[in-house]
Structure formats: C-alpha cells, structure tokens
C-alpha cells in the first residue's frame, strides 16, 4: 500500500484507506473517494502543486497534504486488493 502521492501519472489504483478528520473524509466521500473505489492519477502539477485524480468519471484536484493521507493499492498488486474495506479496517486498528 502506498499513498496517492507515490503513484505514477496514468497509474490505476484502488483506494484502501482515507485518514484525516471526519470533515475532510466527508468532503472526499462527497466527491466519490470511498474505500474500494478505483482511481487514476491523471495529472501531477509542477513542484508542490496539487494532483488531479480521476474518480468515477470526474476529475478532482487534491492538494499534496491531503493526497498523502489517501492510501491506495496499485492495480495488479493483488495481495491487498481482495477485500478493500475489510483490510482498511485492519489498517485502522
């Protein structure tokens, strides 16, 4: 598992766990970031700028601070892929 930040542009991954405050989690969920959802890192901007992530057909800009709190498992990394939500619980403990 790695953070959204560590993905390469164009790479597909599954969201495993979102940490951070409830407020931010709601904000991310409202825009489609749920555990188990597939996302694509669409764009990385210069130096310290935000990432653009494609999720459920829409594009969302995410600052790097928040992106580092979203843990993902890149497609093809099958060990952690199976029960996304369950393993997220495991990680939470």
């Amino acid at each position: 598992m790695k953070s959204l930040m560590e993905l390469r542009v164009g790479e597909t991954a599954k969201v495993m766990k979102i940490s951070g405050g409830f407020r931010m989690q709601v904000q991310l969920k409202n825009l489609g970031f749920h555990e188990g959802v597939t996302v694509i890192l669409a764009k990385k901007s210069a130096i310290s700028g935000p990432l653009m992530v494609a999720v459920n057909g829409s594009n969302v800009a995410i600052g790097r601070g928040i992106a580092s709190k979203i843990l993902v498992s890149p497609a093809g990394d099958t060990t952690e892929d199976a029960h996304a939500t369950d393993s997220a619980h495991g990680a939470a403990k």
Binding site: R23, M24, P50, A61, I62, G63, I66
Partner: peptide
C-alpha cells in the same frame, strides 16, 4: 494552523 489543503472538483 495549517490550511486543510485543496479538494476541488475540476468540472468538465
């Protein structure tokens, strides 16, 4: 206090 950072939909 650190600003929570950007989360913004980029509409079509």
């Amino acid at each position: 206090r650190i600003t929570p950072g950007l989360v913004l939909e980029i509409p079509a």
